[in-house]
Computed example of a mutant assay.
Amino acid sequence: MDVIPVALAGRSYDVTIEAGCVLDGFARNADAYLRSYRPATAGAPRAVPFVADTNSHALFRDAVEESLDSAGLEARWFVVAPGEGAKSWAVLEQVTDWLLGLGISRSDHVFALGGGVVGDLTGFACAIAKRGCGFVQLPTTLLAQVDSSVGGKTAINTSAGKNLIGAFHQPSAVLIDPLVLDTLPDREMRAGHAEVLKYGLLGDAEFFAWLEANGSRVLAREADPLAYAIATSIAAKARIVAEDERETSGTRALLNLGHTFGHALEAETGFGDRLLHGEAVALGMVLAARYSEHRGELSASDAERVTRAVDRAGLPSELAALNLDCDGDKLCAHMHHDKKMEGSTLPFVLLRAIGGAYLARDVDLADLAAFLDRQMQAH
């Protein structure tokens, strides 16, 4: 078992990584896991709210309900459809109305069981219900385990763009069970691996080199490499979040490596199954590396290493392969809706080396659009 603290003034919490802590151990050790987060009222069993997507609900409901039964508690479920469509005003309203109907108090906790969509939606609902109630993350995808479940960013999507309406609201705890990834489709596993690669690229060249050698073992879900990749990724994010919780100093912005490109690609492809978030981030990191090379800041050999690592993970690495019906100007127009816009300037996370990300505030969007046009015609 690994326990990684996220050290924040007055709001610190632990990320616990333990094989079986949700799938098996959650049932065996319900009292230990729930003691701090169970409803405080004595007497009759209280309802413990769980928000889950349909996949996680079908896979893990029995184990969760066994856990609660053994602790003298009862589960209440709000189940959403999988995918980005659940991060909407309409579903947010339904979740908050449901929580208020259960009589949730500010001392209660809601459990988010699912991928990043469930965590983002649940966290935002908990940020605004009763002006803030607690929640616990039980992430069931690799992407959520290594990235979105940690750090307190919660949001929904709107017609203007992805994650533009939200709040910083830290969880009370994060419980990560690598064994639940055995149920994850291979495509989702690869999408999550993009975020693992990101941590090496942005600040840990040694970890990136380890992933070049061992990434196939992580994707194959070998226990030790998978646990190491998860723990190393979370430790990196915890350090950055502790230093810059609300993305004010620029340090936390480095976590957006690949995301400015990626969100534009998601917007152009409709935020659906055509291009998953992790796939968009993977291609976005390749584009960030190539654009850094174009600017004379990253060597051609390092840019090629990024492309090869993404390729070997089975993730998209060529913009031309998407066959988008748009040009570079339109992709740049999507970027204007990015929440990182500062006045008329959009900071980009670029690379000077593997493990050497930095925040560029001097990107000429006309030059970027021309670069993207060439990428859509290349290879």
Rank of each mutant, 00 (worst) to 15 (best):
V3Q: 13
A9M: 10
R11K: 15
S12V: 12
D14V: 00
V15F: 07
I17S: 04
E18T: 12
G20S: 06
A27S: 15
N29A: 11
Y33I: 12
L34K: 07
S36K: 14
R38T: 12
P39S: 12
T41P: 05
V48D: 02
V48S: 09
V51R: 01
T54M: 11
N55T: 14
H57V: 01
A63V: 15
A71P: 13
V79G: 10
A81Q: 15
P82E: 12
E84G: 13
G85N: 13
A90Y: 11
V91G: 08
L92F: 07
Q94C: 13
L99R: 00
G101K: 11
H109K: 10
V110W: 06
A112D: 10
G115F: 08
D120Y: 08
G134M: 06
Q137T: 09
L142A: 01
L143M: 10
L143K: 00
L143T: 02
Q145E: 00
T154V: 07
K162F: 07
H169V: 09
S172R: 15
R187M: 04
M189W: 10
R190L: 03
R190G: 11
V196F: 03
V196L: 02
L197P: 02
D204T: 04
E206H: 13
A209C: 09
A209Y: 01
W210C: 04
A213H: 10
E222Q: 12
D224R: 13
T232R: 15
S233F: 02
L257D: 08
T260H: 03
A264K: 06
A264P: 11
E266P: 13
G272S: 15
D273Q: 14
R274F: 05
A280C: 09
A282N: 05
A289N: 00
S292T: 02
S299A: 13
A303E: 00
V310K: 02
A321R: 14
L324M: 03
D325K: 10
D329Q: 14
K330R: 15
H334M: 09
P347T: 09
A353F: 04
G355K: 01
Y358K: 11
R361I: 06
D364P: 13
A366S: 14
L368D: 09
A370F: 00
L372Y: 06
D373C: 11
